Computed example of a mutant assay.
Amino acid sequence: MRLVQCTKESGIDLATWDPGTTLARCKPNMIKSYNYYRNFQLRHDELQWAGMGGLVGADFGSGIEDLELGKFIYELPGIALLSRTIISNVGLRYGIATQKALPSGLRAVATHADKITPNDLGWFVRKVLVMQKAIYQDMMTQHLTYVRTGLTGIREMHAAEIIDDRTMTAWEDVASGDSSRIARGNADLLRREQEYCVGTLWDQCRGYKNGVGEALTYMTTLAGSPSVAGVPALREFRPVKFTTDVAGAGKTEVQLGIPSWDWSIFSERWTFVTSELLPRYTYQAKHDRAALNRQLTTPYEQLWNQSRPLYNIPRILASTVNATKVKPAG
């Protein structure tokens, strides 16, 4: 019943919401769902998960749109060659042993990117669409229940084993009126989203076709740029670093402008969320609500389009180059 109420309030026709189709067909529902998220935050200060999800949804949805359009499929051979060149040059310049410092995702791109087919892209896009709907079904029904009936309704969901003990405690924190508990409760809701709702689905994406999936998830990490104020692009967080001996220069620290991690791995994703995304959003919600509200009321198509990797290639390339550094160790 709550799911029907959510989709009705969102303006979504639940009967035609099929993540097994294409992003082009699901995009209107995605935008309506993320607007619904944002409205919860605009009307209820404590519902920070919803505001954050509404903003970040544009980043990931727009990235998947570019993927589905296939416009960058023609660049995949070049991406594979570039990755192989990076690996080769690191080995030639700093020694073969230093190649071990390079992430497996980069090697997957080097080996598999030029073998990715439109069917592979379609499979990957559909998995992400399944994730988006799964999050909505789980989290929005809880949010609507909380807004309509408060903790009484949430306790009924807990008694019916729809939510677990940790999620019940999270909602008690959200409803507490205490800023520290509100932040903690929203963090636990975010963990439920990332671990319970989509954790296994991201693992399936990364494990797809013996390296093809890992190439796609690593490229997603390379291109991702959350819209929350102050949060770095995924590629700028924990870049590849290693120390090596260079002839004539001695111990040298090398940093490459590529990520050492993969968003699809829960433990690595959660490190980024808890050290960057969550604290910065919480700070903005508490200390700069006017700026946050401007984002939350920006037309969603505008947010979506300004996040598209296709429109941000110069910025992506610039940040990759600027993050590459070589200096004497110490």
Rank of each mutant, 00 (worst) to 15 (best):
G150Y: 03
P118V: 04
G153V: 05
R126Q: 13
Y146H: 13
H112C: 04
M139A: 12
I154C: 00
M157K: 11
T152F: 15
T149V: 10
D120C: 09
G122K: 13
A113D: 04
H143N: 11
R155V: 00
I116M: 01
A160P: 02
Y136F: 13
D120N: 10
M157C: 06
V125I: 13
K115T: 06
V125M: 07
W123I: 07
Q142G: 01
E161M: 15
A113H: 07
K127H: 13
Q137L: 14
D114I: 03
K133I: 10
A134W: 00
R155N: 06
Q132S: 05
N119H: 02
L144F: 09
L121F: 09
L151G: 03
G150A: 03
Y146M: 13
D120V: 07
Y146S: 09
G153T: 06
Q137N: 15
K127D: 11
L129E: 05
V147P: 12
G122W: 08
L144D: 07
L144T: 12
A110C: 00
A160S: 09
L151P: 03
A110H: 00
I154D: 00
V147N: 08
T152D: 15
T141Q: 10
L151D: 02
M140Y: 11
L151Y: 01
T141A: 09
G153D: 03
T111W: 09
T149R: 13
V147C: 11
E161T: 15
R126T: 08
K127R: 14
V147S: 11
L129D: 06
A159K: 01
V147W: 05
M157I: 10
I163S: 05
V128P: 12
H158N: 03
T145K: 05
H112A: 01
I163W: 05
L129F: 06
K133M: 10
L121R: 04
A113I: 05
G150K: 03
H158C: 01
Q137P: 01
L151H: 03
T117A: 08
V147F: 04
M140F: 13
M140L: 15
T141C: 10
Q132I: 04
M157E: 09
Y136R: 10
M157S: 08
Q132L: 06
Q142F: 05
E161K: 15
L129N: 08
I135C: 09
L151Q: 02
T145M: 08
I162D: 03
I116Q: 02
Q142S: 04
L129S: 06
Q142D: 04
M131A: 10
L129Q: 08
V147M: 07
Q137M: 14
M139P: 00
P118D: 02
K127A: 10
M139Q: 13
F124V: 01
V125T: 14
H143K: 05
W123N: 14
T149F: 13
I135M: 09
M131P: 07
R148I: 15
K115W: 03
L129K: 06
M140P: 11
I154T: 01
V109N: 04
I163L: 12
I163A: 05
D138M: 07
T141F: 11
A110G: 03
D138Y: 08
T117E: 10
L144R: 12
D114M: 07
N119R: 01
Q142L: 09
H158P: 01
A160N: 11
T141G: 04
V109Y: 05
R148D: 15
M140T: 13
V130K: 00
P118Q: 02
L151F: 02
